[in-house]
């Protein structure tokens, strides 16, 4: 019973911290984008608009909950919950510091990729259940994109896995604190693998330039077109948590996780995660969007062959060196 309570406590802490960080990451993104666009961003609620996330949440809570005619109620209502659950679930295996990890799985990387694959199901459920053609098209695009970009994501993640000889994220970080971060690996493995992982991560998290499933200038709001109030908020939150967790995973796989001098491990992990997170938004507010067929071409003609070559190269290098 004690172990159960302990797990519950850790889970509650992680979820609370994730949600809070997400809410203010949203504020930070709005300020960041505003600076890029020579605007001010939120200024009215609290000092420098710092309470804007609270105001947004209160507004969304008051919104009417609308179910479209002939919508599939079960799928429609289940989708946002599943989306948020899957996004948060991925955080379970991320090691924030040597001892701060929700579940120290030996197959952590596999678990992450599996969860990543599951996140497309609620998106398609929402697209199908909404009884809206824009949502359906968004769901179709989401499936095509998710299947295509799973592959390079997995291949890129395999490079540190093979180097460290473990699928446990903690052990991968340990390996990096002994042998250096991605740029200290053989140059033909580390840097390409990191770039490949970042690209596939952007696509997995539906961020520009790969945000075609919700492409608001084409599909209105994609799968979330018919969602209102808190159900929409759950989708929105899931998206941000997904990006945040993906940044944390990238930090653990390639940037040495909690490894770093002068400061406690947790500080380094948080700093690296937030730096990657800001990088994602920098890209988002800078680039335009690809077309869906261009997206598929990039994945299958370029990213997947690169990933296969990287994995093969890593394997050869590990065998040759030993």
């Amino acid at each position: 019973m004690n172990a159960f309570l302990e797990a519950l406590l850790i889970a509650t802490v992680i979820i609370t911290v994730l949600m809070t960080v997400t809410a203010w990451a949203l504020w930070f993104e709005r300020k960041f984008a505003a600076r890029m666009q020579s605007r001010l961003g939120p200024t009215m609620v609290g000092k420098s608009g710092l309470l804007q996330p609270v105001a947004d949440l209160l507004k969304l809570l008051q919104k009417e909950d609308i179910l479209t005619t002939h919508a599939d109620g079960l799928l429609f209502n289940l989708a946002p919950v599943l989306a948020a659950g899957a996004a948060i679930g991925a955080a379970a295996v991320v090691p924030f510091a040597p001892n701060i990890v929700g579940a120290n799985l030996d197959l952590g990387v596999l678990f992450l990729l599996a969860i990543g694959a599951v996140t497309v199901l609620p998106v398609f459920a929402a697209g199908w259940g909404s009884n809206n053609k824009f949502a359906l098209l968004g769901g179709m695009r989401a499936i095509a994109q998710s299947i295509s970009y799973e592959v390079p994501l997995l291949l890129a993640a395999l490079v540190p896995v093979i180097l460290a000889g473990s699928m446990n994220l903690g052990e991968i970080v340990e390996y990096q604190s002994k042998h250096g971060w991605f740029f200290a690996w053989p140059f033909f493995l580390g840097i390409p693998a990191f770039v490949l992982f970042l690209l596939a991560m952007l696509a997995e998290a539906n961020r520009i330039p790969f945000d075609i499933p919700e492409a608001e200038s084409e599909l209105v709001a994609g799968v979330t077109t018919e969602y209102t109030g808190m159900k929409f908020a759950l989708f929105y939150m899931a998206e941000y948590v997904h990006t945040l967790v993906a940044s944390a995973v990238a930090a653990a796989l390639f940037l040495g996780g909690w490894d770093g001098p002068f400061a406690p491990g947790l500080h380094w992990m948080v700093a690296k995660t937030l730096a990657l997170f800001v990088g994602v938004y920098w890209v988002r507010w800078t680039l335009l969007r690809f077309r869906s067929d261009q997206l598929m071409r990039i994945a299958w003609y370029f990213l997947v062959p690169t990933g296969v070559a990287l994995v093969a190269g890593t394997a050869v290098w590990v065998v040759w060196r030993s």
Binding site: I208, P209, D211, E216, S217, R284, W285, T286, L288, R289
Partner: peptide
């Protein structure tokens, strides 16, 4: 904005 979205590079 048509190419890049109202919440992205297009709006910049």
């Amino acid at each position: 904005m048509d190419l890049g979205g109202a919440l992205g590079g297009g709006s910049t």
